[in-house]
Design a protein around this nucleic acid. Structure first.
Lengths: 345, 345
DNA sequence: TGTCCGGGGTTTTACGTATAACGTGCAGCG
DNA sequence: CGCTGCACGTTATACGTAAAACCCCGGACA
């Protein structure tokens, strides 16, 4: 028995099939129409299967100068939204023989750290969330600066992106605002994410504009980090402030909304009877909490899919699909008409 | 100006520094002690920096026959637990110049699909969760069969793993059981995951054993898929069944616990006054819902870290660290003493 | 009958790196 | 003074693949 420990190479397959290595490469690369007889091709394929041959990707990458690998840059995988973006991107990638490697920018990433050192694979392109600000700077400053870059949910005015995949965030926030104002709410609080990112600026602006459209409606803003406890604390402070108390809390995402609900109840009030709360994103969390959250559904997987498709298009020299991805309001149980006006004290 | 479009190679650096390519490789690979003068080394490094040289990983991998890349196989990234495992593994990997590529086995993956086709990189090893059963079969059947395999949270008796990283799941469930039995609960329901996996078998067995230790305690089991709605439905069915009603619901994870809480309240009962509910994992969800869940905290990041460390050890020929990772009971607001016995009807 | 053509391959080369094998001059030593 | 050995490099090679360039042979055609 020949030594079987080492992985078989195309040369081994060639020997087994009684042909040259080049022929093996042609056949297995599906480039043999009219260059190799049907019979020989079958022979080669049989030998390859018998030996359990799998091409050495390092060698192939070296030869082709391409790795069929994209880097996905996100703030944190523990945020379900980005886990779903990854899932979508990886799915489309797989369909095209691509891989996706992650650069979940660690909290507090600095420009000192090179994202491409941790992304071991050489890369064909980068897909980056606008929320991963630190990592983005690192990318621009480093070697990958010339790679095709697809930006997700980012400022259309910002330069440097070969393509852009955006959600119609403004529309989502307008729908939330319309829903709440339509229910009769006039004193709203925007529980806004402390993260500096275009996507949150858009939320703020859309909400402010919608509220301005209603004469007697007022809006105030408090900001908090993107987690349950921070949101709860910020909300408690906002609700114990000067009267009259707001009747609706518009949150930048579902996680914050969960925190807001907790705050409301800690103060002895009810959601939605006393105070309405709205979320954003429609994560699994939105239906895990009680009451289930009225929120805006973002097609996270679609964002990843379209991001990957756009990157593939750019790499192919085609024009990527444009147009914002639509979002939709999902009305559940955390919003209701405001309580009847109380007698003036 | 020379053409700058193509990426510089070590040969370019050599030319710029006036040395041979081999010298560049020695210097940049930190293998030059006593073989290259300090001055020449400095020259080379300077030239490399000036040109913005970065080694071609495909070439390096080909030469070395190693890719410094591990495959992490998990059921789904959208489960926060596995996102955290990834984070831990990627962190340790980065410290050692390794990368981690994901194979989140898509729902219903069959052996037909080759995990290594989607994991584009060639691999040095595999880290796999025991919950990713389909993908595991695929791995065993495919080319990667001979790669070092580190199993996470898996049956110690199962063969084929070069190393194993386990949590002390049984201890966690015993603590939960002790907590509830100590509070006085005697009619328990185990809301068990329908996923067939060692980690859930252990939960079931540990709970059953603990309950058997208390003379008048009884345990029944209902099983459901690992999501909020499925758990809610299963719980509703369990609670509307034959009396006397159970007083405690022991859930296989926090997600199911959230569903169980919803079911309890839909039936007009309260958590924890009427029925106690416990979770498992201590995900962010556990403190996002109300009441906050009594649960078992699993060190997810540690699992990833230790999995990667173990893989590195195996690759180095060292012996991986052994011993189960400890878990801890976290008592919050979803558990309380059972309601006082009602008068017999 | 000489020439061309195309089917069916083979030989050769290149990708960029790491490193084993090989100089080369100079100091030290017997 | 010839030999050894060290300090400092260089030359050459291999990794496994893809594909360009080449080659051979049998038939068609003028």
């Amino acid at each position: 028995m020949t030594e079987q420990s080492a992985r078989p190479t195309s040369k081994d397959v060639a020997r087994a099939a009684g042909v040259s290595q080049a022929t093996v490469s042609l056949v297995l690369g599906d480039k043999w129409r009219g260059r190799v007889s049907e019979r020989t091709a079958a022979l080669v394929r049989e030998a390859a299967r018998a030996l359990g041959y799998r091409p050495n990707l390092a060698a192939r990458n070296l030869r082709l100068g391409t790795t069929r690998t994209a880097l996905l840059v996100v703030p944190a995988l523990t945020n379900e939204f980005f886990a779903r973006v990854y899932t979508g991107a990886a799915g489309v990638a797989a369909e095209h023989g691509f891989g996706v490697v992650l650069y979940p920018s660690p909290a507090g990433v600095g420009p000192a750290r090179d994202p491409f050192a941790s992304a071991r694979a050489a890369l064909d392109g980068v897909i980056a969330s606008s929320m991963a600000t630190g990592a983005l700077d690192a990318i621009r400053g480093s070697d990958g600066a010339d790679l095709p870059l697809v930006m997700l949910d980012s400022d259309p005015a910002a330069p440097g992106a070969a393509a852009r995949v955006n959600l119609d965030i403004a529309d989502g926030m307008r729908q939330i605002a319309g829903h709440l104002l339509g229910l009769g709410h006039r004193r709203l609080v925007h529980l806004s994410s402390a993260v500096a990112s275009w996507t949150f600026d858009v939320r703020a602006e859309a909400l402010a504009e919608a509220v301005r459209g209603v004469p007697d409606a007022v809006l105030s803003t408090v900001s908090a980090a993107l987690d349950v406890d921070a949101a709860r604390e910020a909300t408690e402070r906002a609700l114990t402030g000067p009267r009259p108390r707001p009747t609706a809390l518009v949150c930048d995402d579902d996680i914050m909304a969960a925190g807001a609900c907790k705050a409301v109840r800690r103060l002895g009030l009810r959601v939605p009877e006393d105070i309405s709360v709205s979320g954003f994103d429609d994560l699994a969390l939105a239906t895990a909490v009680e009451p289930e959250l009225t929120t805006v559904r973002l097609p996270a997987e679609r964002v990843g899919e379209r991001g990957m498709s756009a990157l593939l298009a750019v790499l192919d020299g085609r024009r990527p699909e444009t147009g914002d991805l639509p979002v939709s309001l999902v009305v559940r149980d955390s919003t209701a008409p405001p309580p009847p006006a109380r007698p003036v004290p």
